[in-house]
Amino acid sequence: MKIWSISNQKGGVGKTTSVVSLGGLLADQGHRVLLVDLDPHGSLTSYFGQDPDGLERSLYHLFFEQRWRNVDYIRDTLKPTSLANVSMLPATTSLATLERQVSGQDGMGLVLARSLAQLWDDYDYALLDTPPILGVLLVNALAACQQLVIPTQTEHLALKGLERMVHTLKMVMKSQKRELPYTIVPTLFDRRTSASLTSLKEMRRTYQGALWDEAIPVDTRLRDASHEGVFPHQLDPNTRGVRAYRHLLAQLCGEKR
């Protein structure tokens, strides 16, 4: 299984949209995909018609009674999406209380990594949708993934979130004594606005090596797909947003375009 975390310590930058778009395209290539919702808001969970306030089981429950050891329990927690070869490990709002519940217990950053290890042969890819706050959930995602994708809105304020995210990543790598490659993905790009152009330039200057050399454009079809609860490529395989995500996927998979 390949595990990618889609993270930024800022909200509204396109994390959930990227998880769904990339996950859908991987599934379209025939891969078995698991999407994991680590955000207590449960946007990804709601995207596929599940209620984060009503579900009986979620990622939250894996943190207790060593359920992360129990592969049957984990499999029973998964929910379907609009594609047969994509499943989802949903979030419930109770995730918001996790920080307090597990405080003082060591090793709680490794629960997701251990849970995914139980599903290792069930899926080819796991994509992790993370909350924008630094806490036990984000640490779980960083500890579990082999690659980090950082969607960053092309506007000035978003650069701060990016800087924080990279700082956090460096500390987690130090704590885990390993290297974690990351790719910065400019999102919500609108070439008609100077804010988009200036911030993109700024990102290039500071993060050349890690910055993807294209950008995800503003595309209302991506929003439409979330209203319909389907993967964007299911709604329109050739819309600008989907095409851009296809390029990004090729880059992340290490294929040269």
Binding site: D106, G107, M108, G109, L110, L134, V136, V139, A143, T168, M171, V172, K174, S175, Q176
Partner: peptide, 16 residues
């Protein structure tokens, strides 16, 4: 600040 965060990460990422 970094010290505090490192302690936090170490504690979350190490088992007893």
């Amino acid at each position: 600040n970094t010290d505090v965060l490192m302690g936090y990460f170490d504690s979350l990422l190490t088992t007893l």
